[in-house]
């Protein structure tokens, strides 16, 4: 078991008004799974992803990651986990402006214990997403789809166990979106755990399991039959 959430509760305190965002979530994800977390906006799916991704701490409940209880981890420990074992892909790419593609991909290595071979690792990651010929471009000189692929390369460069993708196709046209999804499929096929957060069923159907959340509670957790799955192709742009 890679991820094991037990009765996770998250409350936000907005000047005395307490909002219950997660109301006792139990969820287990095995290594190598491809899971989509679905739900309407305000359902708590982003908060759940942030909690699983160690960007946020639960108010109560226990979170075992790779067999370890994460309760006693301090902020620096969490930063190290985010760096070494988790990769994030965001809807809005979040690349550094005025910076080359390869420097963007090398960024996580800067905060890692890996001291050498940064450029080579970044190059390998960029080749894996089909952008080996764009390494010296500025991040604002490439298309949206390419930006998201750079973001995926950045998420991969430290060789993490889990890849989180938060609406990865939300800002993309269908062609670029298709390419991004096929890359995620491929990464999962190679054994990496992929957790997808989306409100779009066509995106969610790429996954092998769909967890639906509403009002801070999981209302369904279903396997997707192989025949129902959507497969995307790389469409060159």
């Amino acid at each position: 078991m890679l991820i094991d959430l037990k009765d996770i509760v998250k409350d936000y305190d907005n000047g005395g008004i307490i909002t219950h965002v997660l109301k006792g979530v139990n969820l287990s994800i095995d290594e190598g799974e491809f899971v989509a977390i679905m739900g309407p906006s305000g359902s708590g799916k982003s908060t759940l992803m942030h909690t699983i991704g160690f960007l946020d701490r639960p108010t109560s409940g226990e979170y075992f990651f790779d067999g370890q209880n994460t309760k006693d981890f301090d902020d620096d420990d969490l930063a190290h986990i985010r760096n070494e074992r988790i990769g994030f892909v965001f809807q809005s790419f979040n690349l550094l402006p005025r910076t080359t593609v390869i420097d963007n991909v090398m960024l996580p290595l800067l905060y890692s214990n890996i001291k050498t071979g940064h450029r080579h690792k970044a190059k390998v990651a960029l080749e894996a997403v089909g952008l080996g010929d764009r390494i010296d471009f500025m991040s604002n000189q490439i298309s949206g789809g390419q930006k998201q692929r750079v973001a995926i390369a950045r998420a991969l460069v430290c060789n993490p166990k889990v890849l989180f993708a938060d609406e990865p196709t939300g800002n993309l046209d269908s062609k670029s979106g298709s390419t991004v999804m096929s890359i995620l499929e491929q990464l999962n096929k190679e054994g990496r755990t992929v957790i997808l957060v989306t409100h779009d069923m066509n995106v969610a159907l790429h996954a092998h399991r769909i967890v639906t959340i509403k009002d801070g509670e999981i209302i369904s957790d279903k396997k997707v039959d192989a025949k129902d799955r959507i497969h995307s192709k790389i469409i060159s742009d």
Binding site: L55, A79, H80, L96, Y111, S112
Partner: peptide, 16 residues
């Protein structure tokens, strides 16, 4: 601010 958030999400500690 977004850049700082990004850096933290990919593993930068507060000290860094």
């Amino acid at each position: 601010t977004r850049e700082i958030g990004l850096r933290k999400s990919i593993g930068a500690t507060s000290k860094q």
